[in-house]
């Protein structure tokens, strides 16, 4: 501890702050706790540290009761995401409740996929993001065929990576592995160091203007896909450097 009010290495007779904090939480073994208590009673400096730690706990509780206003841009984005979810659900003709959706997911799947593609556009508008039309010429008709030809390198912002990947994966029965063999190999090496190393998605993309690779790996549950956006995989023998990650939940797994 270097704070002038606290015990320091120059004052070895004082208890250090960790010991006093442990004393307050009853974490010290009995003999040590006894010695520490006796010391605190007799030492004004250590008593002050003790009091300050007790006070800190109360101050943190006070502070914890206060909300923190969510920044406006984040709140707007969140609203748009929730609207997207609602649109996705309500576009599913004949399905009005989560219970129905959960019980009959297969029956409603094709409609969900179509709705999902439409939702991307709504979400993008909602947050003021302009989808790049040049690289999304196929995706513009995504309501009909939300898959990408193997050779395409779509452009998107980081915010759009999750919805796009969700769409690609939900429209496929298995892993989606696009890109050159070098790029896929680079993704495999990246995946080997992760908890779930089985590749679910490799998709070359331009993300925020950078040539990148979107890599999908199994997430915490069977429906979840952990997405990483990496640079460095587009060339031969490259090494992946992640710069964005997110998780998506697939409805049809």
């Amino acid at each position: 501890m270097t704070d002038s009010g606290l015990p320091t290495s120059e004052h070895l007779e004082h208890l250090d702050t960790d010991t006093i904090a442990d004393l307050i939480e009853n974490l010290l073994p009995a003999p040590e706790a006894h010695r520490a208590r006796e010391h605190v009673k007799a030492c004004p400096d250590c008593q002050q540290t003790y009091d300050a730690l007790v006070q800190l706990t109360e101050d943190l509780a006070d502070e914890g009761r206060a909300d923190i206003p969510m920044p406006t841009d984040i709140a707007e984005h969140l609203d748009a995401v929730i609207v997207s979810e609602s649109v996705l659900r309500s576009s599913t003709v004949g399905v009005h409740s989560l219970v129905q959706l959960r019980e009959e997911p297969r029956r409603h799947l094709p409609k969900l996929v179509l709705a999902a593609a439409g939702v991307i556009v709504i979400a993008a508008v909602g947050v003021g993001v302009v989808v790049s039309t040049a690289d999304h010429s196929n995706e513009g008709a995504a309501g009909i065929n939300p898959t990408l030809p193997a050779g395409e390198v779509p452009s998107m912002t980081t915010d759009q990576v999750g919805p796009n990947a969700q769409k690609w994966l939900e429209n496929s029965n298995g892993p989606v592995l696009h890109g050159s063999s070098d790029e896929i190999q680079c993704a495999r090496v990246f995946a080997a160091g992760r908890p779930g190393s089985e590749l679910r998605l490799v998709q070359p993309a331009k993300v925020d203007g950078k040539r990148a690779t979107v890599i999908g790996l199994p997430g915490g549950s069977p429906q979840d896909i952990q997405l990483s956006v990496v640079t460095g995989c587009s060339g031969s023998g490259g090494v992946a450097t992640p710069f964005y990650d997110t998780t998506v939940t697939l409805r049809n797994r």
Partner: peptide, 21 residues
């Protein structure tokens, strides 16, 4: 306990301004 011990020097000025000690 250890977290509070780390935070204390970082937030001690709260208590001085409040006269907490």
């Amino acid at each position: 306990a250890r977290g509070r011990a780390r935070l204390l020097p970082l937030l001690r000025h709260w208590q001085t301004t409040r006269g907490g000690s």
